[in-house]
Nucleic acid binder design. Structure first.
Lengths: 205, 205
DNA sequence: GTCTATAAACAGATAGAC
DNA sequence: GTCTATCTGTTTATAGAC
């Protein structure tokens, strides 16, 4: 039985997937070159085609995987039994932490979706992006006078905007604020509390 | 003297720039084809090179123009003499209204900056992205106990995140919320008030 | 200035040896 | 499975006629 913990013992297919994820998320589908991916994986171009037939097929593997590793978590937390304010905290905690390790993901996903919106359709269907339960919870809190009225769409937009924008706007923020890499990392660490506070204060009656 | 109001009387260079802006902002630099731009402008590929030498040069013209038409306005409003809460309202009004007419701009700019962060440097130097005055105002309001403490970086991130994210995340929002184009437009119209309210409520002591 | 035709460079994909 | 060499189609860029 293979030692699953030996991270350096990757087979070729895994090497390719890791390299492809790095190059695609950094440069986008159109900007990525099969040569770049092969070099990153330390193998030959031809092997990419041997394992994945085409650039499109390879990309689909990466894109689907990325989407599946991020979107469902939001639905899971939002549809849970947790109190509203705890959900806010969990979402900001999870997304800011995950994206700190993979900061290229948001701009990659949103750029590709913006160029090819159809890509989302299958994935959404598959995972059933049902926010019905969450909408009910939100409406209950409003009806009981616990929070100010807000539509589900705006609540979710606000929450994700506050969490994700630092990663999307990184070069702009670093430029406008004159931050170096170290300073930017500190700034990101502060975001979790800022997001939670901003969301909760804006909802308080 | 030419009639500057006759919008249909564009010379070839203007036709190219208009077409290039449309194609580049929609598909990004790597995804854009010179053929697409020529077709959009109703002219021949060779003419693009006659006027702009290369795809890179043409892109620079567009990118610089786009940056100059959006960034300085924020600095202008933030560095003005207006009260803090009015600045919030002006920013959300200006950016949500402008971007409604050109919704591709944010993802375009942020994707290109993410692939080539150096692009920003010259532009920022040129326009002097100085937020010193604004930081002083923010600190004064905090010191006088008028608003809760918040760093300039987080204030600006929050404000721009709330304004810009709907355009960046459009396909995702439409997918998750099951919105059609008409519904999305209504949703965007509501954002201006949501942004102002969210920002101001989160700052209130 | 504007076009057609073509060159030159590149990128994705395949053939075939090992 | 993995490599080198090559093919095929695409894309940017140029030459040259009008």
């Amino acid at each position: 039985m293979k030692n699953i913990l030996a991270t350096e013992e990757l087979n070729t297919e895994e090497l390719i997937l890791r390299a492809a994820k790095k190059i695609f998320t950094h440069k986008g589908f159109e900007g990525a070159r099969m040569k770049d991916i092969a070099d990153e994986a330390g193998i030959n171009k031809a092997l990419l085609h041997y394992y994945f037939r085409s650039k499109d097929k390879l990309f689909e593997s990466i894109f689907d995987g990325v989407l599946k590793s991020f979107l469902p978590q939001a639905i899971l937390i939002l549809s849970s039994e947790l109190p509203l304010f705890q959900k806010i905290d969990r979402i900001s905690e999870y997304y800011i932490q995950s994206l700190s390790k993979q900061p290229d993901i948001p701009i990659f996903v949103l750029h590709e979706l913006s160029v090819n919106p159809y890509r989302l359709i299958e994935n959404i269907k598959e995972h059933g992006m049902d926010l019905h339960l969450f909408s009910q919870q939100l409406q209950s809190e409003i009806d009981e006078g616990k929070i100010r009225p807000i539509k589900t769409a705006h609540f979710i937009t606000n929450l994700f905007a506050l969490c994700v924008f630092p990663f999307i706007g990184r070069p702009l923020i670093m430029g406008m604020m004159n931050l170096n890499d170290t300073e930017f990392n500190s700034y990101v660490l502060e975001r979790r509390q800022i997001v939670t506070e901003t969301m909760i204060r804006s909802l308080k009656v």
